[in-house]
Design a protein around this nucleic acid. Structure first.
Length: 278
DNA sequence: CGGCCCCTGACG
DNA sequence: CGTCAGGGGCCG
């Protein structure tokens, strides 16, 4: 489920709770979430490691160890991380349990089991997680009108599809693609080559701003996070189009419309986001 | 590119 | 019961 803002929240909440902790034990309850068949390599690689920090790249998280070895993960649709006490009831679909030195556990829960974990040694070149294929972060200084225009324009591709391309900008998923397009007043079906210079400029400006706004709206305490079992996102009430089809547009009151683009549900305002506009 | 796959749960 | 879901990889 999570896109960049939610993954950033998870990083912010989890990091201080596991920083400096040693992984004393690992229970693999469902090996499918480990991205390769050599279970022993994963298990033995992780156990005994001491955590220094967590970093985020797009929708990936990396748990770094003192040895400089790294545990990288992607939550995909339904993955979530929880730090719990030992006696906290085991959630259904808990696949990995990392025992930490301070009588706590880091748990990975994922009903659909689409999420994946990789363990990489410090000198191992990462060519397996997919991080090497990612484009730049939306907050990168290089997100300029020139960059987005040059890299996003693909013949016969709608701008909505372009925004979902992780090899150009990383971290935008279906929700925030719709929110960004609403903020810029661009119709999601509009072909990338038909966008005006002004529209590209609005995209370059709005992409980091919209994502930052939803990261802020998502701030949560560790207690609240655990209460929501890592699944409640505080920023959902602030979404303006996603999930609001057949409701009036907050700007103009026109009924928001739902269409399917590249087999992804897409919500937009037919009045604020006209295909002919620019 | 589209289409299919990986899965479970929520909802109509 | 069928359909859909905020993800991405792979295959032809």
């Amino acid at each position: 489920m999570p896109e960049l803002p939610e993954v950033e929240t998870i990083r912010t909440v989890i990091e201080p709770q596991i920083q400096g902790q040693q992984i004393t034990k690992l229970a693999v309850r469902h090996p499918q979430v480990i991205a390769y068949p050599e279970m022993e390599l994963f298990h033995d690689g992780v156990v005994g490691q001491t955590i220094t920090h967590i970093s985020r790249r797009g929708k990936f998280l990396s748990i770094h160890f003192e040895t400089k070895d790294v545990l990288t993960l992607h939550l995909r649709m339904t993955g979530c991380l929880l730090v719990t006490s030992l006696d906290y009831p085991l959630e259904k679909h808990t696949h990995l349990v990392f025992s930490l030195g301070d009588q706590k556990e880091l748990r990975y829960i994922d009903p659909r089991r689409f999420g994946r974990f990789w363990f990489l040694r410090r000198n191992e070149k990462d060519e397996i997680t997919g991080i090497h294929k990612l484009g730049i972060e939306p907050f990168d200084q290089n997100v300029t009108v020139e960059y987005v225009q040059e890299r996003f324009i693909k013949r016969n591709r709608s701008i909505k599809e372009c925004l979902l391309d992780q090899t150009v900008l990383t971290g935008i998923g279906n929700i925030y693609a719709d929110e960004i397009l609403f903020s810029t007043g661009i119709c999601p079906m509009k072909k990338s080559q038909a966008l005006s210079k002004e529209e590209w400029q609005r995209l370059a400006t709005e992409i980091p701003q919209v994502l930052r706004y939803y990261i802020e709206k998502n701030s949560i305490t560790p207690e609240e996070y655990l209460q929501g079992k890592g699944k409640d996102y505080q920023n959902t009430p602030f979404l303006r189009v996603y999930g609001h089809h057949d409701e009036p547009c907050v700007i103009c009151g026109t009924m928001l419309k739902r269409v399917v683009i590249a087999s992804r549900g897409t919500v937009y305002c037919p009045s604020c986001q006209k295909e002919s506009g620019g």
